[in-house]
Each structure stands twice: as structure tokens, then as C-alpha cells.
Design a protein around this nucleic acid. Structure first.
Length: 269
DNA sequence: ATGGTAGAGATTCTA
């Protein structure tokens, strides 16, 4: 009997500030695994009772002071996977790979927080943009070496909106970091190493699709100038198991919201 | 063309 398996990715933008929203997320999506980014929480300050309190007793995290940080919560036991790494030699807590028990055997879930890249889309003058390009290229090269990867899911805030209709205006964002041709080309190369785009599997490319709306808009809902920065990819063997997706846009209107909303993909395993 | 908001934690950086 196949079982649903739901994975959620959410850039929570401070775990300690927004942990009280997790029960709302769980009530809306009933996930099996939750991957968070931008926890901004050092490991020794990770709330010790949180995982049990929300019904996800198995949790792994990699955090640091002030910036970045990822955490993966699971209903069932998980183990840190040996492919967890730093990618470009900085210990800045942007990746966590976990092996999760599921029907049919373990799944490996990669939780990524790709560098945002600063404002100027030129690696020669902006070291943050250079770091972003180097990071994505390193991740691409890693997965290019394992083209037959199976039972793996890659999620996270990848900070790149790859397709024309992943942004509110393709033409106006071509020189804006997150949608420049050099980034979207690298992003596509990375995805095509091993993975199917789990959101565009359900939504045709000519349809607008966003997961992030800036804090800086006067009225984010009315302006609707969003971008699709958060992604769920699955290895090709799992493509036939994809059942549905949810982009929890309501979460952008919650009290004291993140600027990203939770994204859920359900597979039938 | 510009500036707009949010979070951490220290009086500025990152997004």
C-alpha cells in the first residue's frame, strides 16, 4: 500500500523569532519532514524542547551566530548523511544532508541555503556574488559526479529564480541578482545533473509561480512582485511518485511573517 | 531612478 510522504521547505528567517508559527505550518500541510533555512541560531541556543513539542522528535541542525543556518525536522528517525559539506571552504552552515526512513527504504534529503549574492551582479567587484557563483558551481560539480543518484530530494532557498515566469518581470529583473543569466544558467546545470524540478512538474512554465515576496513592498499582496527562490527537486526515479504540491501563500500574511512561504511536495512511496 | 523593511546584535551587516 503506497503511503504519502510530504516534504516542506521554508526559509523561516530566524527560528527563535518564528518558532511559534511551526504548528500553523504543520496544521496546514501535515508534513513528514520540514527543512528550514536562515535559522540564525547557534547550535547551543537551539530551543531544546521545540522538536518534541511540535511532534517532530527527530531533528538535525547546523547553525551559527547571526546568519545562515539550516535545520531538518522529521517524524521518523533521521541520520546525518556524510555528504553534508561546506562547498567552498567556509563553515557557514548552508547545507545539511539527512537520511530519513520512509516506505521502500531511506531517502536522502539535502537542505540548502544558497548565498543571496549581494546587490551588484558582477563577481569582479562583488565578493558576495562571486561566492554565490562558486557555491552553485561546486554543488553542480558534486552532483554531476553522481548521475545515477536515486531516492534523493534536494530542497531549500536556492536564491535563484531560474525561469521567465519565476519572477514578476523577466525583463526588469535580468540585471537583478537572483535572475541574471549567469545565475540561472548555473542553477539549471545544477538541477539537470540528477534532478527533476518538483514544482514545475505540476505548474506549466508559462504560469507565474512565486515563493518569496519582499518585505520592502508597501503592499506585497497587491503589488505581487514575487520570485520563485525556494525549490524542491527529486531524483528521476522519484518522478513517477510526485503527487501534488502546495505553496502556502497564506503564510506571507501571517503575523510577523517570513518573506518566504513554506513549499510542500507530496510523493506516493 | 530610487528607496522601501526586517532580523541579529551591536551601534552595522546581511538579505
Amino acid at each position: 500500500m503506497p503511503q504519502p510522504f510530504r516534504v516542506v521547505t521554508w526559509n523561516i528567517n530566524s527560528l527563535r523569532l518564528r518558532q511559534g508559527l511551526l504548528p500553523d505550518l504543520i496544521g496546514a500541510l501535515d508534513p513528514d519532514v520540514i527543512c528550514l533555512q536562515e535559522t540564525k541560531c547557534p547550535d547551543d541556543l537551539f530551543p531544546p524542547e521545540l522538536a518534541a513539542a511540535i511532534g517532530f522528535p527527530h531533528v538535525l541542525f547546523r547553525g551559527m551566530k547571526g546568519y545562515n543556518g539550516v535545520a531538518t525536522f522529521s517524524r521518523t528517525p533521521i541520520r546525518r548523511h556524510e555528504t553534508t559539506q561546506d562547498w567552498v571552504g567556509r563553515n557557514d552552515c548552508r547545507h545539511l544532508a539527512a537520511e530519513v526512513d520512509a516506505r521502500g527504504g531511506p531517502l536522502v534529503i539535502h537542505n540548502f541555503y544558497v548565498p543571496a549574492g549581494g546587490d551588484i551582479p558582477d563577481p569582479a567587484v562583488n565578493p558576495k556574488f562571486a561566492h554565490k557563483l562558486d557555491f552553485v558551481a561546486a554543488a553542480r560539480d558534486h552532483f554531476a559526479a553522481t548521475p545515477d543518484l536515486r531516492r534523493s530530494i534536494l530542497v531549500g532557498d536556492l536564491n535563484i529564480a531560474p525561469l521567465e515566469h519565476d519572477v514578476w518581470s523577466h525583463k526588469q529583473l535580468l540585471k537583478i541578482v537572483s535572475h541574471t543569466p549567469v545565475e540561472t544558467a548555473l542553477h539549471t546545470e545544477w538541477q539537470q545533473t540528477c534532478f527533476t524540478d518538483g514544482l514545475r512538474h505540476f505548474v506549466p512554465p508559462e504560469e507565474k509561480l512565486y515563493t518569496w515576496w519582499s518585505y520592502r513592498a508597501r503592499d506585497w499582496l497587491a503589488a505581487d512582485r514575487g520570485r520563485r527562490l525556494d525549490h524542491v527537486w527529486v531524483t528521476h526515479d522519484l518522478r513517477g511518485a510526485l503527487r501534488r504540491h502546495v505553496i502556502l501563500k497564506d503564510a506571507r500574511g501571517w503575523t510577523q511573517p517570513s518573506d518566504h512561504v513554506p513549499v510542500c511536495v507530496e510523493l506516493s512511496l
